[in-house]
Nucleic acid binder design. Structure first.
Lengths: 153, 153
DNA sequence: TAATAAACGATCAAATTGATCAAGTATTTC
DNA sequence: GAAATACTTGATCAATTTGATCGTTTATTA
């Protein structure tokens, strides 16, 4: 039921790019440093994200990456689907990555019907959460943890 | 976000064992045939399930496996957790399989907070669905597809 | 009692995928 | 043209999935 490490890194990189949206491009080095992601691996992932049209890059000195779309237009589902594939726990309930299951009768598989509900729920959550929502959450998290005690000492 | 093949097979085998609950033990051969699961692989999986206390076995001729607990007492979550591990999309939000994430500040990670909600939702669904529910669903699925036309020639 | 069907246990192997590293090439800015 | 950076390709290492072999143990049945 887990995201691949690749997918997790992609989400974290995109989250950072979303925070810097509007500013200058962010280098792999910076992304790698700030998010603790192995640089070489991140390189590949960003390349994939570029092919998907979610980010664009600039070469040479002061080069780097930035979002190709506004954060509000990028739901988490889109990133995950591109990097990791299906959101479904089993591929026989996937809408976009459907594969026939080896079970005897898919149409009457009880397990399948449960998994379909899980898929739909997860897909809906990932679809409605965009990078903008992440930014908003991050802001809240920055203020809340210490609470009103922020100003003590 | 997918279950491993191992986990999927485990669920399907358990589903069949639940349907036969109360009857005689079911052999690996039967399970393998009826559910289209590679026999050798299934052998390993059933072994794991046995160590977990979810199934028990009987040796010798007419030997096989059966549930060690009533179907109502076995939620899908328990099977998945034992075979596949965490239900969470990322391990830094897992309750039972927690692992520290490589991100700079877990407590203020927006992605984490989203993933936590996904985890909680999925966990709740898998926790409340037991093998009895699968049986009930299977019954519905057996009757519904054809509908009231069942008796037409 | 002997034959048989099954679980159990231990490996090995091959194919695939996932995660990572290494090294060189191309492009832009200074 | 030097330096910093993205880009490309290929190598490596580990885990997963599946298949194969071989033997041991247990219980039924003829």
């Amino acid at each position: 039921m887990k995201l691949s490490v690749r997918g997790e890194y992609a989400l974290r990189a995109m989250q950072l790019l979303a925070e810097r949206y509007g500013g200058p491009v962010v280098s792999i080095q910076t992304l790698s440093d700030e998010q603790n992601i192995p640089k070489r691996f991140l390189e590949q992932i960003l390349n994939d994200l570029k092919s998907s049209g979610l980010v664009e890059s600039r070469r040479g000195m002061a080069g780097g990456y930035r979002l190709a779309l506004a954060p509000a237009e990028i739901p988490l589902a889109r990133i995950i689907r591109y990097i990791d594939g299906a959101l479904s726990p089993v591929s026989c309930v996937s809408e976009r990555f459907y594969e026939k299951c080896s079970c005897p009768d898919e149409t009457r598989c009880a397990l399948r019907s449960v998994m379909k509900e899980v898929r739909d729920t997860v897909a809906q959550m990932m679809e409605k959460t965009t990078l903008v929502d992440l930014i908003a959450r991050a802001q809240k998290l920055r203020s809340v943890p210490m609470g009103p005690m922020d100003f003590v000492i």
